[in-house]
Design a protein around this nucleic acid. Structure first.
Length: 357
DNA sequence: CACTCGTGGGA
DNA sequence: TTCCCAAGAGT
Protein backbone atom coordinates (compact mmCIF):
# COMPACT_ATOMS: atom_id res chain seq x y z
CA UNK A 1 0.00 0.00 0.00
CA UNK A 2 1.52 3.30 -1.13
CA UNK A 3 1.51 6.59 0.74
CA UNK A 4 -1.39 8.84 -0.34
CA UNK A 5 -0.20 11.02 -3.23
CA UNK A 6 -1.06 14.73 -2.87
CA UNK A 7 -1.15 15.07 -6.65
CA UNK A 8 -4.11 12.71 -6.87
CA UNK A 9 -6.05 14.77 -4.34
CA UNK A 10 -5.15 18.07 -6.04
CA UNK A 11 -6.27 16.71 -9.42
CA UNK A 12 -9.57 15.67 -7.85
CA UNK A 13 -9.91 19.13 -6.29
CA UNK A 14 -9.32 20.83 -9.63
CA UNK A 15 -12.50 19.28 -10.96
CA UNK A 16 -14.57 18.86 -7.78
CA UNK A 17 -13.88 21.89 -5.58
CA UNK A 18 -16.97 23.28 -3.92
CA UNK A 19 -17.87 26.82 -4.87
CA UNK A 20 -18.03 28.86 -1.66
CA UNK A 21 -18.43 32.61 -1.08
CA UNK A 22 -15.06 33.00 0.66
CA UNK A 23 -13.13 30.89 -1.77
CA UNK A 24 -11.10 31.43 -4.96
CA UNK A 25 -11.56 28.50 -7.36
CA UNK A 26 -8.51 26.39 -8.25
CA UNK A 27 -6.56 28.10 -11.04
CA UNK A 28 -5.06 26.75 -14.29
CA UNK A 29 -1.57 25.28 -13.99
CA UNK A 30 1.08 27.87 -13.23
CA UNK A 31 -1.33 30.52 -12.02
CA UNK A 32 -1.94 31.49 -8.42
CA UNK A 33 -4.72 33.78 -7.23
CA UNK A 34 -5.00 34.25 -3.49
CA UNK A 35 -8.23 35.09 -1.67
CA UNK A 36 -8.73 38.12 0.58
CA UNK A 37 -7.24 37.20 4.00
CA UNK A 38 -10.05 39.07 5.73
CA UNK A 39 -12.67 36.87 4.09
CA UNK A 40 -10.64 33.73 4.74
CA UNK A 41 -10.25 34.63 8.40
CA UNK A 42 -13.91 35.56 8.82
CA UNK A 43 -15.05 32.32 7.21
CA UNK A 44 -12.67 30.23 9.31
CA UNK A 45 -13.93 31.76 12.55
CA UNK A 46 -17.56 31.25 11.54
CA UNK A 47 -16.88 27.68 10.44
CA UNK A 48 -15.42 26.60 13.78
CA UNK A 49 -17.70 23.74 14.83
CA UNK A 50 -20.35 25.12 12.49
CA UNK A 51 -21.72 23.81 9.20
CA UNK A 52 -21.20 25.51 5.84
CA UNK A 53 -24.97 25.76 5.40
CA UNK A 54 -25.36 27.65 8.67
CA UNK A 55 -22.46 29.99 7.93
CA UNK A 56 -23.29 31.14 4.39
CA UNK A 57 -26.03 33.61 5.29
CA UNK A 58 -24.04 35.09 8.15
CA UNK A 59 -20.96 35.42 5.97
CA UNK A 60 -22.96 37.30 3.34
CA UNK A 61 -24.47 39.59 5.98
CA UNK A 62 -21.12 40.33 7.59
CA UNK A 63 -19.22 41.02 4.39
CA UNK A 64 -22.01 43.21 3.06
CA UNK A 65 -22.09 45.21 6.26
CA UNK A 66 -18.36 45.20 6.99
CA UNK A 67 -16.60 44.67 3.63
CA UNK A 68 -13.09 45.08 5.03
CA UNK A 69 -11.15 44.40 8.19
CA UNK A 70 -10.99 48.14 8.86
CA UNK A 71 -14.79 48.32 8.70
CA UNK A 72 -15.12 45.57 11.27
CA UNK A 73 -12.48 47.12 13.51
CA UNK A 74 -14.47 50.36 13.44
CA UNK A 75 -17.74 48.60 14.33
CA UNK A 76 -19.36 48.49 17.76
CA UNK A 77 -19.06 45.18 19.56
CA UNK A 78 -22.78 45.14 20.31
CA UNK A 79 -23.55 45.47 16.61
CA UNK A 80 -21.29 42.50 15.93
CA UNK A 81 -23.00 40.45 18.65
CA UNK A 82 -26.42 41.30 17.24
CA UNK A 83 -25.27 40.22 13.78
CA UNK A 84 -23.82 37.00 15.22
CA UNK A 85 -26.98 36.11 17.17
CA UNK A 86 -28.15 32.59 16.31
CA UNK A 87 -24.79 31.32 15.09
CA UNK A 88 -23.68 30.09 18.52
CA UNK A 89 -20.38 30.02 20.41
CA UNK A 90 -20.61 33.73 21.08
CA UNK A 91 -17.07 34.12 22.39
CA UNK A 92 -16.13 33.79 18.73
CA UNK A 93 -17.88 37.07 18.03
CA UNK A 94 -16.05 38.84 20.86
CA UNK A 95 -12.73 37.43 19.74
CA UNK A 96 -13.54 38.32 16.15
CA UNK A 97 -13.87 41.95 17.13
CA UNK A 98 -10.79 41.80 19.39
CA UNK A 99 -8.80 40.22 16.58
CA UNK A 100 -9.85 42.88 14.07
CA UNK A 101 -8.78 45.57 16.51
CA UNK A 102 -5.45 43.85 17.17
CA UNK A 103 -4.61 43.47 13.49
CA UNK A 104 -5.30 47.15 12.92
CA UNK A 105 -3.42 48.23 16.05
CA UNK A 106 -0.43 45.89 15.85
CA UNK A 107 -0.13 44.82 12.21
CA UNK A 108 -1.04 47.93 10.25
CA UNK A 109 -4.39 46.47 9.27
CA UNK A 110 -2.96 43.49 7.38
CA UNK A 111 -3.08 39.93 8.66
CA UNK A 112 0.34 38.39 9.35
CA UNK A 113 1.24 35.73 6.78
CA UNK A 114 2.70 33.13 9.12
CA UNK A 115 1.32 30.70 11.69
CA UNK A 116 3.39 31.97 14.61
CA UNK A 117 2.04 35.51 14.44
CA UNK A 118 -1.49 34.45 13.51
CA UNK A 119 -1.56 32.11 16.50
CA UNK A 120 -1.09 35.07 18.87
CA UNK A 121 -4.33 36.73 17.77
CA UNK A 122 -7.60 36.30 19.72
CA UNK A 123 -9.78 33.45 18.50
CA UNK A 124 -7.04 32.01 16.29
CA UNK A 125 -5.81 28.64 17.50
CA UNK A 126 -3.56 26.02 15.96
CA UNK A 127 -6.04 24.99 13.28
CA UNK A 128 -7.15 28.46 12.20
CA UNK A 129 -3.59 29.82 12.10
CA UNK A 130 -2.55 26.99 9.82
CA UNK A 131 -5.66 27.36 7.67
CA UNK A 132 -5.17 31.10 7.12
CA UNK A 133 -1.46 30.67 6.43
CA UNK A 134 -2.19 27.97 3.87
CA UNK A 135 -5.35 29.30 2.21
CA UNK A 136 -4.78 33.06 2.27
CA UNK A 137 -0.97 33.04 1.82
CA UNK A 138 -0.27 29.63 0.28
CA UNK A 139 2.20 28.74 3.05
CA UNK A 140 2.94 25.02 3.51
CA UNK A 141 1.16 24.72 6.87
CA UNK A 142 -0.16 21.42 8.21
CA UNK A 143 -3.89 22.01 8.56
CA UNK A 144 -5.63 19.59 10.91
CA UNK A 145 -9.35 20.01 11.45
CA UNK A 146 -12.15 17.52 12.00
CA UNK A 147 -12.16 16.58 8.32
CA UNK A 148 -8.44 15.90 8.29
CA UNK A 149 -8.71 13.86 11.46
CA UNK A 150 -11.33 11.68 9.86
CA UNK A 151 -9.56 11.33 6.51
CA UNK A 152 -6.18 10.57 8.06
CA UNK A 153 -7.62 8.17 10.64
CA UNK A 154 -9.10 6.18 7.78
CA UNK A 155 -6.18 6.41 5.36
CA UNK A 156 -3.79 4.98 7.96
CA UNK A 157 -6.37 2.96 9.88
CA UNK A 158 -5.55 4.56 13.22
CA UNK A 159 -7.21 2.43 15.88
CA UNK A 160 -6.48 4.62 18.90
CA UNK A 161 -9.55 6.71 19.72
CA UNK A 162 -9.70 10.52 19.66
CA UNK A 163 -8.52 12.68 21.25
CA UNK A 164 -5.53 10.52 22.17
CA UNK A 165 -4.73 9.86 18.53
CA UNK A 166 -4.18 13.55 17.71
CA UNK A 167 -0.38 13.51 17.89
CA UNK A 168 -0.25 10.57 15.50
CA UNK A 169 -2.80 12.18 13.20
CA UNK A 170 -0.65 15.30 13.02
CA UNK A 171 2.38 13.19 12.23
CA UNK A 172 0.58 11.47 9.36
CA UNK A 173 -0.92 14.73 8.12
CA UNK A 174 2.56 16.24 7.99
CA UNK A 175 3.65 13.26 5.94
CA UNK A 176 1.05 13.83 3.22
CA UNK A 177 1.00 17.66 3.12
CA UNK A 178 2.90 18.93 0.04
CA UNK A 179 4.98 22.08 -0.38
CA UNK A 180 3.26 22.63 -3.72
CA UNK A 181 -0.20 24.28 -3.64
CA UNK A 182 -0.60 23.92 0.15
CA UNK A 183 -3.66 26.21 0.16
CA UNK A 184 -5.50 24.12 -2.39
CA UNK A 185 -4.38 20.96 -0.62
CA UNK A 186 -5.88 22.15 2.68
CA UNK A 187 -9.16 23.02 1.02
CA UNK A 188 -9.11 19.76 -0.92
CA UNK A 189 -8.83 17.81 2.34
CA UNK A 190 -11.86 19.63 3.68
CA UNK A 191 -13.86 19.06 0.51
CA UNK A 192 -12.90 15.41 0.53
CA UNK A 193 -14.05 15.11 4.14
CA UNK A 194 -17.26 17.01 3.46
CA UNK A 195 -18.35 15.26 0.26
CA UNK A 196 -16.57 11.88 -0.02
CA UNK A 197 -14.98 10.82 3.24
CA UNK A 198 -18.08 11.74 5.23
CA UNK A 199 -18.71 10.66 8.83
CA UNK A 200 -21.53 8.17 8.21
CA UNK A 201 -21.61 6.82 4.69
CA UNK A 202 -18.35 7.58 2.90
CA UNK A 203 -18.39 7.19 -0.88
CA UNK A 204 -15.10 5.38 -1.20
CA UNK A 205 -15.73 4.50 -4.82
CA UNK A 206 -15.38 8.18 -5.75
CA UNK A 207 -12.32 8.87 -3.59
CA UNK A 208 -9.05 9.75 -5.35
CA UNK A 209 -7.19 8.02 -2.53
CA UNK A 210 -9.18 4.81 -2.43
CA UNK A 211 -6.22 2.68 -3.52
CA UNK A 212 -4.00 3.95 -0.72
CA UNK A 213 -6.65 3.91 2.02
CA UNK A 214 -6.33 1.17 4.62
CA UNK A 215 -10.04 1.08 5.52
CA UNK A 216 -11.72 1.84 2.19
CA UNK A 217 -12.63 -1.79 1.73
CA UNK A 218 -13.54 -2.51 5.33
CA UNK A 219 -17.15 -3.10 6.25
CA UNK A 220 -16.77 -0.62 9.09
CA UNK A 221 -15.30 2.46 7.43
CA UNK A 222 -17.72 4.66 9.34
CA UNK A 223 -16.28 3.43 12.64
CA UNK A 224 -13.23 5.58 11.96
CA UNK A 225 -12.13 7.78 13.54
CA UNK A 226 -12.78 5.96 16.79
CA UNK A 227 -13.79 8.23 19.62
CA UNK A 228 -13.78 8.10 23.39
CA UNK A 229 -17.27 7.50 24.82
CA UNK A 230 -19.25 10.62 25.68
CA UNK A 231 -20.54 11.46 29.12
CA UNK A 232 -24.26 11.89 29.71
CA UNK A 233 -25.79 15.36 29.42
CA UNK A 234 -27.28 16.66 32.69
CA UNK A 235 -30.49 18.70 32.87
CA UNK A 236 -30.69 22.17 34.38
CA UNK A 237 -33.81 24.10 35.32
CA UNK A 238 -34.71 27.75 35.47
CA UNK A 239 -37.59 30.21 35.36
CA UNK A 240 -37.85 33.18 33.01
CA UNK A 241 -40.20 36.18 33.00
CA UNK A 242 -41.52 37.61 29.77
CA UNK A 243 -42.79 41.06 30.69
CA UNK A 244 -44.72 42.94 28.05
CA UNK A 245 -45.99 46.49 27.84
CA UNK A 246 -49.34 47.36 26.30
CA UNK A 247 -47.56 48.39 23.09
CA UNK A 248 -46.12 44.89 22.71
CA UNK A 249 -42.56 45.75 23.76
CA UNK A 250 -40.70 43.26 25.98
CA UNK A 251 -38.30 43.63 28.90
CA UNK A 252 -34.71 42.52 28.20
CA UNK A 253 -31.36 42.59 29.94
CA UNK A 254 -27.77 41.79 29.03
CA UNK A 255 -26.04 38.64 30.24
CA UNK A 256 -22.61 38.85 31.89
CA UNK A 257 -19.74 39.35 29.45
CA UNK A 258 -18.12 36.03 30.27
CA UNK A 259 -19.48 32.50 30.31
CA UNK A 260 -22.44 30.92 28.59
CA UNK A 261 -24.09 33.23 26.04
CA UNK A 262 -21.73 35.94 27.28
CA UNK A 263 -22.77 39.47 26.45
CA UNK A 264 -25.97 38.37 24.74
CA UNK A 265 -29.50 39.57 25.51
CA UNK A 266 -32.08 37.64 27.54
CA UNK A 267 -35.38 38.01 29.33
CA UNK A 268 -34.93 38.27 33.12
CA UNK A 269 -34.96 35.02 35.06
CA UNK A 270 -33.45 32.82 37.73
CA UNK A 271 -30.13 31.02 37.67
CA UNK A 272 -30.13 27.66 35.87
CA UNK A 273 -29.58 24.94 38.43
CA UNK A 274 -29.70 21.17 38.72
CA UNK A 275 -32.75 21.35 40.98
CA UNK A 276 -36.08 22.52 39.63
CA UNK A 277 -36.66 24.96 42.48
CA UNK A 278 -39.61 27.12 41.48
CA UNK A 279 -38.84 30.33 43.38
CA UNK A 280 -40.72 32.13 40.67
CA UNK A 281 -42.96 34.26 42.85
CA UNK A 282 -40.06 35.49 44.92
CA UNK A 283 -37.94 36.39 41.94
CA UNK A 284 -40.60 37.95 39.75
CA UNK A 285 -40.08 41.68 39.43
CA UNK A 286 -42.88 43.70 41.06
CA UNK A 287 -43.95 45.36 37.84
CA UNK A 288 -46.84 43.06 37.04
CA UNK A 289 -49.79 42.41 39.34
CA UNK A 290 -50.86 39.33 37.47
CA UNK A 291 -48.68 36.53 36.15
CA UNK A 292 -49.48 33.59 33.90
CA UNK A 293 -47.36 30.46 33.83
CA UNK A 294 -47.22 28.76 30.46
CA UNK A 295 -48.47 25.20 30.44
CA UNK A 296 -45.41 23.87 28.71
CA UNK A 297 -41.78 24.72 29.56
CA UNK A 298 -39.32 25.75 26.89
CA UNK A 299 -36.57 23.19 26.36
CA UNK A 300 -33.23 23.72 24.71
CA UNK A 301 -30.16 21.52 24.42
CA UNK A 302 -26.69 23.02 24.67
CA UNK A 303 -23.47 21.15 24.01
CA UNK A 304 -23.02 19.96 27.57
CA UNK A 305 -26.43 20.22 29.24
CA UNK A 306 -30.15 20.20 28.60
CA UNK A 307 -32.18 23.18 29.80
CA UNK A 308 -35.81 23.30 30.93
CA UNK A 309 -37.22 26.78 31.43
CA UNK A 310 -40.54 27.57 33.11
CA UNK A 311 -41.98 30.62 31.40
CA UNK A 312 -44.06 33.24 33.18
CA UNK A 313 -45.67 36.11 31.32
CA UNK A 314 -47.23 39.36 32.49
CA UNK A 315 -48.10 42.87 31.39
CA UNK A 316 -46.43 45.74 33.22
CA UNK A 317 -48.81 47.71 35.45
CA UNK A 318 -47.43 51.07 34.35
CA UNK A 319 -46.01 52.23 31.04
CA UNK A 320 -42.31 52.80 30.48
CA UNK A 321 -41.06 51.95 33.91
CA UNK A 322 -37.31 52.27 34.20
CA UNK A 323 -35.61 49.17 35.57
CA UNK A 324 -31.90 49.21 36.29
CA UNK A 325 -29.81 47.43 33.61
CA UNK A 326 -32.93 46.42 31.64
CA UNK A 327 -34.54 47.92 28.56
CA UNK A 328 -37.81 47.71 26.67
CA UNK A 329 -37.42 46.27 23.22
CA UNK A 330 -40.15 47.32 20.80
CA UNK A 331 -41.89 44.98 18.38
CA UNK A 332 -39.67 46.26 15.61
CA UNK A 333 -36.43 46.08 17.62
CA UNK A 334 -36.71 42.53 18.95
CA UNK A 335 -35.67 40.87 15.71
CA UNK A 336 -32.41 42.81 15.72
CA UNK A 337 -31.49 42.19 19.36
CA UNK A 338 -28.55 39.98 20.34
CA UNK A 339 -30.93 37.24 21.41
CA UNK A 340 -29.57 33.69 21.35
CA UNK A 341 -31.80 30.96 19.99
CA UNK A 342 -32.93 29.72 23.40
CA UNK A 343 -34.31 33.20 24.18
CA UNK A 344 -36.06 33.43 20.83
CA UNK A 345 -37.75 30.14 21.70
CA UNK A 346 -38.93 31.68 24.98
CA UNK A 347 -40.33 34.75 23.23
CA UNK A 348 -42.08 32.62 20.66
CA UNK A 349 -43.69 30.53 23.40
CA UNK A 350 -44.92 33.70 25.13
CA UNK A 351 -46.14 35.33 21.93
CA UNK A 352 -49.83 34.40 22.42
CA UNK A 353 -49.81 36.46 25.61
CA UNK A 354 -48.38 39.56 23.98
CA UNK A 355 -50.78 42.53 24.00
CA UNK A 356 -52.10 44.11 20.83
CA UNK A 357 -52.16 41.13 18.50
C1' DC B 1 -5.88 17.42 30.16
C1' DA B 2 -10.62 18.01 30.73
C1' DC B 3 -14.07 21.04 30.65
C1' DT B 4 -16.76 24.99 28.78
C1' DC B 5 -18.94 26.93 25.03
C1' DG B 6 -24.53 26.90 20.55
C1' DT B 7 -27.03 25.62 16.98
C1' DG B 8 -29.69 23.39 13.19
C1' DG B 9 -29.85 19.55 10.32
C1' DG B 10 -29.55 14.76 9.06
C1' DA B 11 -29.93 9.75 9.91
C1' DT C 1 -37.42 10.69 18.79
C1' DT C 2 -32.85 10.75 19.92
C1' DC C 3 -28.39 11.03 18.85
C1' DC C 4 -24.52 12.81 16.40
C1' DC C 5 -22.22 16.11 14.59
C1' DA C 6 -19.66 20.70 11.82
C1' DA C 7 -13.42 24.19 8.96
C1' DG C 8 -11.97 24.59 17.51
C1' DA C 9 -10.50 28.01 21.04
C1' DG C 10 -9.84 29.32 25.73
C1' DT C 11 -8.90 28.15 30.23
Amino acid sequence: MSTPDPKLLLAWYDSHARTLPWRVPPQPAGRRVLPDPYRVWLSEIMLQQTTVAAVKGYFDDFTRRWPSLADLAAADLDDVLRAWAGLGYYSRARNLKACANAVVADHGGAFPDNETELRKLPGIGAYTAAAIAAIAFDRPAVVVDGNVERVVSRLFRLTEPLPGSRPLIREKATLVTPNHRPGDFAQAMMDLGATICTPRKPVCGLCPWEKSCLVAHDADVAQFPRKAPKTARPTRHGTVFVVFQADGSVLLRKRPEKGLLGGMAEVPGTEWTAQSADHAEKFAPFICTKWTKLNRPVEHTFTHFHLVLSVWTGVADHANQTIDKHWWSSREAVAGEALPTVMRKVLKAAEPHRPGL
